[in-house]
Amino acid sequence: DNLVIALHSYEPSHDGDLGFEKGEQLRILEQSGEWWKAQSLTTGQEGFIPFNFVAKAN
């Protein structure tokens, strides 16, 4: 599964970004460059996240 966990909170700064809290679990939908499309397992919302704010969940 493409599950990751947030290492830091992220406040969206552009339309289409997905905000999240530290410790939140996300599902990665697309990996492309430094911005990945993800879905929050907490809110169900989708958007782009900075890849270096998350780590693979085990």
Results as ranks from 00 to 15, higher is better:
D1M: 07
D1V: 05
D1P: 02
N2R: 07
N2I: 12
N2E: 05
L3E: 04
L3S: 07
L3M: 12
L3D: 05
L3N: 10
L3A: 02
V4E: 03
V4N: 03
V4Y: 13
V4I: 03
V4L: 13
I5Q: 06
I5C: 10
I5P: 04
I5W: 12
I5V: 15
A6Q: 01
A6G: 09
A6V: 04
A6Y: 00
L7T: 09
L7H: 06
L7R: 07
L7F: 03
L7E: 09
L7A: 08
L7D: 05
L7K: 09
H8Y: 13
H8L: 08
H8D: 14
H8F: 12
H8S: 12
H8W: 08
S9H: 08
S9R: 11
S9K: 14
S9D: 12
S9T: 13
S9Y: 04
Y10D: 05
Y10Q: 07
Y10V: 05
Y10L: 05
E11S: 10
E11C: 09
E11G: 06
E11R: 11
E11P: 06
P12F: 00
P12W: 02
P12Y: 05
P12A: 06
P12V: 03
P12C: 06
P12D: 06
S13T: 15
S13M: 13
S13W: 08
S13I: 09
H14Y: 10
D15H: 12
D15S: 10
D15P: 12
G16I: 07
G16H: 11
G16N: 13
G16Y: 09
G16C: 09
G16K: 07
D17S: 13
D17V: 11
D17M: 14
D17L: 11
D17I: 06
D17H: 14
D17R: 14
G19P: 10
G19F: 04
G19N: 06
G19C: 10
G19I: 05
F20E: 04
F20C: 05
F20V: 09
E21G: 07
E21P: 01
E21K: 13
E21S: 13
E21Q: 14
E21I: 05
K22R: 08
K22D: 03
K22H: 04
K22G: 03
K22W: 00
K22N: 02
K22I: 05
K22T: 10
G23E: 02
G23K: 02
G23M: 02
G23Q: 01
G23V: 00
G23S: 04
G23Y: 03
G23H: 06
E24Q: 06
E24K: 02
E24S: 05
Q25G: 07
L26I: 04
L26E: 04
L26M: 11
L26Q: 04
R27C: 09
R27T: 09
R27N: 05
I28G: 02
I28V: 11
I28D: 01
I28W: 00
I28P: 01
I28N: 04
I28Q: 00
L29F: 05
L29R: 04
L29D: 01
E30T: 08
E30Y: 07
E30M: 08
E30I: 04
E30V: 10
Q31R: 15
Q31Y: 09
S32Y: 12
S32D: 12
S32I: 09
S32H: 07
S32L: 06
S32V: 13
G33I: 05
G33M: 02
G33W: 00
E34Q: 11
E34A: 13
E34N: 09
E34F: 11
E34Y: 13
E34H: 09
E34G: 11
W35A: 13
W35S: 14
W35Q: 15
W36C: 13
W36L: 12
W36A: 15
W36T: 13
W36G: 08
W36F: 10
W36R: 09
W36Q: 06
W36P: 08
K37T: 08
K37I: 11
K37Y: 10
K37S: 07
K37D: 00
K37P: 02
K37R: 13
A38Y: 03
A38F: 02
A38M: 03
A38Q: 01
A38S: 02
A38L: 07
A38K: 00
A38N: 06
Q39K: 13
Q39F: 05
Q39V: 14
Q39S: 08
Q39E: 10
S40R: 12
S40V: 04
L41K: 07
L41F: 05
L41A: 06
L41E: 11
T42C: 09
T42A: 13
T42D: 10
T42H: 12
T42P: 03
T42I: 13
T42K: 15
T42R: 13
T42F: 07
T42V: 14
T42S: 13
T43K: 03
T43S: 12
T43A: 04
T43G: 03
T43P: 01
T43W: 00
T43E: 04
T43V: 01
G44L: 08
G44P: 00
G44I: 04
Q45A: 12
Q45I: 03
E46C: 14
E46V: 15
E46A: 13
G47P: 03
G47I: 00
G47A: 02
G47Q: 00
F48Q: 08
F48I: 08
F48S: 07
F48T: 11
F48W: 15
F48L: 14
F48H: 10
I49W: 00
I49G: 01
I49N: 02
I49K: 02
I49C: 03
I49H: 02
I49D: 02
P50K: 03
P50Q: 01
P50G: 01
F51D: 10
F51V: 13
F51C: 15
F51L: 09
F51I: 15
F51G: 15
N52K: 14
N52D: 14
N52S: 10
F53A: 14
F53G: 06
F53L: 13
F53S: 15
V54L: 03
V54G: 04
A55N: 09
A55W: 05
A55E: 15
K56M: 11
K56Q: 10
K56N: 15
K56S: 14
A57Q: 11
A57Y: 10
N58I: 15
